[in-house]
Amino acid sequence: MKLFFQHKYLWMIAAWMVATSILGGMATKLGPWYFSLIQPPWKPPDWSFGVIWTIIFILSALAWMISFNSNPTPSQKNKITFLFVLNGFLNVLWSMFYFRMQHPDWSLVEAFFLWGSVLAIILVMWPIRRIAAYLMLPYLIWVTIAMCLNWDTLVLNPGAY
Rank of each mutant, 00 (worst) to 15 (best):
K29G: 01
K77F: 02
D46V: 08
W42M: 07
I58D: 08
A27R: 02
P40S: 12
P74Y: 09
K79L: 13
G25H: 13
N69Q: 13
L37M: 07
G31Q: 14
N91V: 06
G24A: 14
Q39W: 04
F49Q: 05
L37E: 03
V85M: 03
D105V: 08
I66E: 00
V51E: 07
P40G: 12
N69G: 08
P44D: 07
G31M: 13
L93Q: 11
L93P: 01
N91D: 11
N78F: 12
W53M: 03
I66D: 00
V92E: 10
L86A: 10
A27M: 04
W94G: 05
V92P: 07
F89R: 01
F89V: 12
F89C: 04
A63I: 01
G24P: 08
N87F: 01
A63D: 03
W47D: 14
W47E: 15
L62T: 02
V85A: 06
L30F: 08
W33G: 10
P45M: 10
S75M: 12
S67M: 04
P72I: 12
P74A: 09
F84E: 00
G31I: 13
D46H: 08
S75E: 14
N91S: 14
W33F: 13
F99K: 01
P74E: 11
Y98L: 13
K29I: 09
G31P: 12
Y98I: 04
I55F: 11
N69K: 10
M101D: 11
I66W: 02
F82G: 08
N91I: 06
S60I: 02
F82C: 05
I56H: 03
F99G: 01
F35D: 11
F97W: 04
T81M: 06
I56C: 08
I38Y: 03
W53Y: 12
L30V: 09
D46I: 06
G24V: 13
S70F: 07
Y34C: 06
W53P: 01
V51W: 11
I52C: 00
S75G: 14
K43E: 13
F68E: 10
Q39L: 05
L59N: 06
F82K: 07
K77R: 15
S67Q: 03
I80P: 02
L62E: 01
F57R: 02
G25D: 08
W42A: 06
M26W: 07
V85S: 02
I58C: 12
F35W: 12
P74T: 09
D46K: 10
L59D: 04
P44E: 12
A61S: 05
P72S: 14
Y34Q: 07
G88W: 00
S67H: 03
F35K: 12
P74W: 09
G88H: 01
G24W: 10
N71E: 11
N91Q: 11
T73M: 13
F84H: 05
G25P: 05
D105M: 05
P41Y: 10
L83Y: 10
G50R: 07
T81Q: 04
P72T: 14
Q102G: 04
S67L: 03
G50K: 07
F68L: 15
N91K: 10
W42K: 08
R100F: 12
G31E: 15
F57S: 03
W94A: 05
M26D: 02
P41Q: 12
W64S: 04
P45W: 11
A63R: 00
T54H: 04
S48Y: 11
